[in-house]
Design a protein around this nucleic acid. Structure first.
Length: 922
RNA sequence: GCGGAUGUGGCGUAAUUGGUAGCCGUGCCAGACUUAGGAUCUGGUGCCGAAAGGCGUGGGGGUUCGAGUCCCUUCAUCCGCACCA
């Protein structure tokens, strides 16, 4: 037997696992289950880089550990296969996205296989597979067929709503819905089918409506709020505009409160929970109506500070507010029209970039103060958002900084109604102080004043306490090809859903992946895109549709009659451990929770939250290398010389560099046109590059492929090394400094099982020494605890300590090394399997029981106490652990060295902490 | 502005959860074996100091016999949200 041949070993064991189905999760049985899930990847053309496997390695360690612990482990993998890049590629090349996707998946699969993950590939899912998206479409139909009853606080079938309408109209119904005029049962029955349909759309959880959407012209599609960052699209960074369009949306807002409350029941990091709380944006306040002078209409506003009502000196409406044109007086019409037009045409981005510029326009209208009858001018201003609250605010410049800025700018009155600030300098926004200038509120504290004001408002019948959420309904239709078709069709402008037995509606073939000449989505190009002879919906679902429920499909991936069988869902239930990146904080993770709650309401799943525990792995960053070109020349200078010149940095491939030294010959062949005839100014004979840490990307030429690492060092080394890099959650730059140490460790481990020349496998059956058992059991304890704490880096370190100690002890005893093999197997499964086989076992190590920890081996009967004086450790003394404290004190005091440090003084007291430390207080 | 995190040797990190700061690994220094090594092994390595000793966990303060760990305050960096009434 030769030395540690990782390439051969790893290849053989991967083959063994595949052939023997070692990691197949068993269907329902009596064994306890454990469900470990990774966020499945979108298979991009770039393949995996070393950052991707970080989370997969961690989840794989947990999975393997749980198998050793006797659990039936579900550890599946699949692909989020619908998405924009494949479609963009298709537009450029004409290549069908399905083909590109298939190729990419193949590549991903190979790369993952190389790392030796224990995925149960027999359960693989792909969101673009019709057998899969059949059920994505099915869920959509269930959403369409449901409304949200606020009384029972759950989704219910639309039939129940219709029968309510038929018996009592909609006056008594409390539902999460759009504003709908009140009608009686009689009126309902007299409505046409079309009228009824459009009313029902106001209630359905999947609904078609005309709404302001984020339109991205460059991508030719609408985007959900979480797909837009800083006014540009998250993918591609293209500008996004507001546009009024008829769109399918999901009424996620109905679930705002449950999505918020649910956060308290799950074990996720505080930062992600906080991000979701923020996104949901609950705010408790009051809605109240201001009567307009000389008009019938009133303006409804939402405020969290009803107590400041006597400080309200004007109202501001969003430019898009529906009352604007009705209330504007002829005198101001032109100015208002101009303002509204400008505001509407400004993109989201411009509006955000322009926060500091205050703009607004008086409408000429006045409202009446509900308590003192004073006239209050009505303005419009784009600092008020149409989409939040009622799109109108009562402006209290004294106690709201935005109203303050607006009032200052337009010279409107600023009234102080809460004490504590200096209004000549800034507004006083704090919810603390006493009310003044406020009639019946004078003298009250803010908290009490809020209560009192709400009482008075309700007494007058002009408003009531109200809770608002920032969470907007999610736009669901995309004007794109490569996504799930929305299973809806249209009869005379009445949207209807496809019969469930006709699912899936399969994505049709089309000639070009572009919108039609008339601007319709690509699906409009499909021949005969109809259902029952009627036109099918042409938009497709967004990327997050398929990923919102995929965790359920793994439980029963081949089921043709249900998304997963009741028994499978009942057995596997929610995900015990979910690992993935933080980038999905408010997208995928919120939508998946929403769908889970909905599926609970319609009795498909028996739980309320899909992911019990969530761990976010940190990003492995790339380190890019830069060289510096002297401006207007073909000369490149070493990094420490660049301050002498005006230079431009250029990113070069990291493979051209070792230890920050650029290989100039390689550089020349890398890009001959640029470097072949270049001049280089060196320092100490070397061209040293600069470095920069950031995302790993082709663009910066800093991508490290895990395949290369597996080939050079082995998959086990890669796995151990990625874990050894630091805590899983931390971001860390990739560096191969140190990977050698891990490989060296595995070689040492290998040698423990072999004779000195590494040639022959050799274990002894002798009884281990006390010290050897201590080393082993210390490691068992640590390895077990660390996995429970997801502290994988410290385990690797513990293995190294263990192997070092056993090597020092020249230990080759079977009863020590076999358990060690099991401990290491979740981390470095290939070498563990090989050594296990060499030990004479014929079965895979994967299901071998985890070694039991025996604390007796760690018990010591004496301890080498540090003796400290006022907390400073000076020397050590050995005492038996069961020695009386008074005895220890006596001996410490009489010790010669103690006398030296006491300098003749008497100690005030002595503190003896058993097995820890002794402190002499002087 | 609001919220979340993080600050420890040259570097990545560790610390029995209030008890000897720096485990493990890199890097560096020295040595051994070698024709040779970017292989392997051994020893050393927080800083200052010849030593005794002193200093040391971003800074300042506090609680404690004892603080990297708890409290207050301050600084720096990273991430998320943000005209949300």
């Amino acid at each position: 037997m030769a030395s540690y041949e990782f390439r051969r070993i790893e290849k053989e064991w991967r083959q063994y696992w595949a052939e023997n189905g070692t990691f197949k999760a068993r269907d329902t049985n009596n064994q306890s289950k454990y469900y470990v899930l990774d966020m499945f990847p979108y298979p991009s053309g770039a393949g995996l880089h070393v950052g991707h496997p970080l989370g997969y390695i961690a989840s794989d360690i947990v999975s393997r550990f749980k198998r050793h612990k006797g659990f039936n482990v579900l550890h599946p993998m699949g692909f989020d296969a619908f998405g924009l890049p494949a479609e963009q590629y298709a537009i450029q090349t004409g290549q069908h996205p399905a083909i590109t996707t298939e190729e990419n998946i193949k590549r991903y699969r190979e790369q993952m296989d190389n790392i030796g993950f224990s995925f149960d590939w027999s359960r693989e899912v792909r969101t673009s597979d019709p057998k899969y998206y059949k059920w994505t479409q099915w869920i959509f139909i269930q959403l369409f067929k449901s409304w949200y009853n606020l009384t029972s606080d759950k989704a219910e079938p639309v039939e129940t709503l219709i029968s309510e309408f038929e018996t009592g109209g909609n006056g008594q119904i409390k539902a999460a819905c759009e504003q709908t005029a009140v009608f009686s049962a009689e009126e309902w029955k007299n409505y046409s089918e079309k009228e009824q349909s459009s009313i029902l759309l106001n209630y359905r959880l999947a609904f078609l409506s005309e709404a302001m959407v984020n339109w991205c012209p460059a991508l030719g599609t609408v985007l959900a709020n979480d797909e837009v960052k800083d006014g540009v699209s998250e993918r591609g960074g293209y500008p996004v505009e507001r546009k009024l369009m008829t769109q399918w949306s999901l009424r996620i807002s109905a679930y705002s409160e449950r999505l918020l409350q649910g956060l308290d029941t799950i074990d996720w990091t505080e930062s992600i929970k906080e991000a979701q709380r923020n996104w949901i944006g609950k705010s408790v306040g009051t809605s109240l109506r201001f009567q307009l002078k000389g008009l019938e209409q009133n303006v409804e506003v939402f405020t969290t500070r009803p107590d400041t009502i006597f400080g309200a000196s004007f109202l501001t409406l969003a430019p898009e507010h529906e009352l604007v044109s009705a209330i504007t007086t002829p005198e101001y019409k032109e100015a208002v029209d101009t303002y509204v037009t400008v505001a509407k045409n400004r993109s989201e981005r411009d509006r955000m970039a322009d926060i500091k510029n205050i703009s607004g326009q008086f409408t000429g209208a006045y409202a009446e103060h509900p308590f003192n009858g004073q006239p209050i001018p009505v303005w419009i201003g784009d600092y008020v958002l149409a989409g939040y609250g009622t799109g109108a605010v009562m402006a209290v410049p004294g106690h709201d900084s935005r109203d303050y800025a607006f009032a200052k700018h337009f010279g409107l009155p600023i009234i102080e109604v809460v004490t504590g600030g200096d209004l000549s300098v800034e507004s006083y926004d704090a919810k603390e102080g006493k009310l003044i200038n406020s009639d019946f509120l004078n003298g009250l504290e803010v908290k009490d004043a809020i209560k009192k004001t709400i009482e008075e408002i309700e007494k007058k019948g002009i408003g009531k306490g109200k809770t608002n959420y920032r969470l907007r309904n999610a736009v669901f239709g995309r004007q794109r090809y490569w996504g799930e078709p929305i299973p809806m069709y249209d009869t005379d402008n009445i949207p209807k859903c496809v019969d469930e037995q006709d699912l899936p509606i399969i994505l049709p073939e089309i000639d070009k992946y572009l919108p039609t000449e008339t601007g319709e989505p690509p699906l409009a190009r499909a021949k005969d895109w109809t259902y029952k002879g009627l036109p099918l919906e042409t938009t497709t679902m967004p990327g997050w549709a398929g990923s919102s429920w995929y965790y359920l499909r793994y439980m029963d991936p081949k089921n043709d009659t249900e998304l997963a069988s009741k028994e499978a869902i009942e057995y596997w239930r929610d995900v015990d451990l979910y690992i993935g990146g933080t980038e999905h904080a408010v997208g995928h993770l919120l939508y998946a929770r929403f769908w889970c709650k909905f599926l609970k309401d319609i009795d498909v799943v028996p739980f309320d939250e899909p992911f019990k525990k969530l761990i976010n792995q940190g990003m492995i960053q790339g380190v890019s290398c830069l060289i510096y070109r002297v401006n207007d020349s073909n000369k490149f200078v070493s990094v420490n010389l660049k301050h002498q010149y005006e230079t431009t940095p250029i990113y070069i491939d990291i493979n051209l560099v070792s230890n920050n030294e650029v290989d100039i010959e390689k550089l020349k062949t890398w890009r001959p046109s640029e470097f072949m005839n270049a001049e280089f100014e060196l320092e100490n004979g070397k061209l040293i590059c600069g470095t920069e840490t950031g995302k790993m990307s082709k663009r910066w030429h800093n991508v490290v492929n895990p395949d290369d690492i597996c080939n050079d060092y082995g998959a086990d080394t890669l796995r151990l090394y990625e874990m050894f890099l630091g805590p899983l959650q931390d971001a860390k730059p990739w560096s191969t400094q140190g990977i050698e140490g891990v490989l060296r460790f595995l070689r040492k481990l290998w040698r423990l099982f072999h004779n000195n020349t590494e040639e022959t496998f050799f274990l002894s059956d002798e009884t281990p020494s006390k010290a050897e058992l201590k080393t082993l059991h210390k490691t068992i304890k640590k390895a077990t605890e660390d996995i429970d704490n997801f502290s994988f880096n410290t385990s690797v370190s513990a293995f190294m300590v263990c192997v070092n100690e056993l090597q020092d002890a020249k230990c080759n005893k079977r009863s020590v090394l076999e358990p060690l093999c099991i401990l290491i197997s979740p981390y470095a499964p290939h070498i563990a399997e090989e050594l296990w086989k060499l030990c004479g076992h014929t079965e895979s190590i994967a299901l071998t029981p985890w070694p039991a920890f025996n604390p007796e081996y760690l018990v010591e009967n004496e301890f080498f106490y540090p003796i400290s004086f006022n907390g400073k450790v000076r020397f050590n003394l050995n005492f038996a652990l069961d020695k009386e404290t008074s005895e220890i004190e006596k001996e410490v005091l009489s010790n010669e060295q103690t006398q030296k440090y006491l300098e003749g003084k008497a100690p005030k007291k002595i503190i003896v902490v058993k097995g820890r430390i002794i402190n002499v207080v002087m």
